[in-house]
């Protein structure tokens, strides 16, 4: 019998059923714990949130049942991430401009692009080790050792490849005709880049850079022996040259404390960190989806 009807018992169909179920199981095993993880972090962390959390200093473990707040770590994360951005964004955007606009696919740009990918793969703790050797142990920054500044530098090394890559790729998406249009009316190269190509690529570059910043904000390994940690309020500019706390390092330190109060602080800090990183990610995804392509007739 050679019927065209679907036959359940055909080995081909049994095999197909089997593998389909297998891939569904894979997806479930992959997804369910992840869903559980996110919900748990948001639930457990969210339930620790109080107004004082944002204004108080953390208390040193053991002294007290009350752990205090995470104000210095929150401000510290903002400062350290800003320092990293201030260093990495100009270098990265400038470098990306060179790769996309000036280098004509020569050996130099191939080498730099390769370097960017390699640097992106360097373990983040190595960036910390490098800054430790270069800045912290040499006390080169006006004699200070561990400092927020050094932490920012370590983070900037991790941000740099992301920024260069998004700039390079964003600019490469700008159609060449647009460059010709500008150069054709007699614009200089730098005017063309600043007034025409860079603005056209602005949205994609900005999205990539913001995602890079969000990622850097959660990095811990490069900070644990560059910025170290601090329990005290950040009061002025001079504090840049001293140990500085951050949400990430606070979570690390307090997760390993045997005291419940500190553990709770770690959960609260996780909540804030994860919530902000996720919202930045979701927001930029939505933006990107709305502006898939520049409008061309």
């Amino acid at each position: 019998m050679n019927s065209l009807y679907y036959q359940k018992r055909l080995s081909r169909n049994i095999g197909d059923k089997f593998f389909t179920s297998l891939s569904v199981i894979c997806a479930l095993i992959a997804i369910l714990p992840l869903i559980f993880l996110v919900t748990y972090i948001l639930y457990k962390g969210g339930s620790q949130i109080t107004p004082e959390l944002f204004t108080l200093e953390p208390n040193p473990p053991g002294d007290d049942l009350d752990a205090g707040g995470i104000n210095p770590a929150l401000i510290g994360t903002l400062i350290i991430t800003s320092i990293a951005s201030i260093i990495a964004i100009p270098i990265g955007v400038g470098g990306g401009i060179y790769l996309a606009e000036y280098s004509k696919g020569g050996a130099f740009s191939k080498f730099i692009r390769f370097g960017v990918n390699v640097l992106a793969g360097v373990p983040s703790i190595i960036a910390g080790v490098f800054i430790y050797a270069l800045i912290v142990s040499t006390k080169i920054l006006f004699g200070s050792m561990y400092s927020g500044l050094a932490g920012g530098m370590a983070l900037s090394i991790l941000m740099l490849p992301t920024v260069i890559k998004t700039t390079d790729e964003g600019l490469k998406l700008v159609p060449n005709e647009l460059r010709y249009a500008s150069l054709g009316v007699g614009a200089s190269m730098y005017t063309t880049i600043l007034k025409v190509t860079l603005p056209s690529a602005f949205r994609s570059i900005a999205t990539g850079v913001v995602l890079g910043i969000a990622r850097a904000a959660g990095e811990t390994a490069p900070l644990i022996f560059t910025a170290l940690f601090s329990y005290y309020y950040i009061t002025g500019f001079g504090d840049l040259f001293y140990e500085m706390g951050s949400l990430a390092v606070l979570i690390y330190n307090f997760a390993l404390e045997p005291y419940d109060a500190q553990n709770k602080l770690a959960w609260a800090a996780s909540f804030i960190l994860v919530l902000s990183i996720l919202s930045v990610n979701i927001f930029s995804r939505i933006l990107a989806a709305f502006n898939e392509k520049p409008k061309r007739v």
Binding site: P175, E177, L178, Y180, A181, S182, L183, G184, V185, G186, A187, S188, M189, V196, P199, S200, P294
Partner: peptide, 18 residues
């Protein structure tokens, strides 16, 4: 650049600025 300021060009594909 100076050459292009004195000799203008219209391209095969229309390419207005955004």
């Amino acid at each position: 650049v100076e050459v292009r300021r004195r000799i203008g060009m219209v391209f095969q594909q229309p390419n207005p600025f955004p």
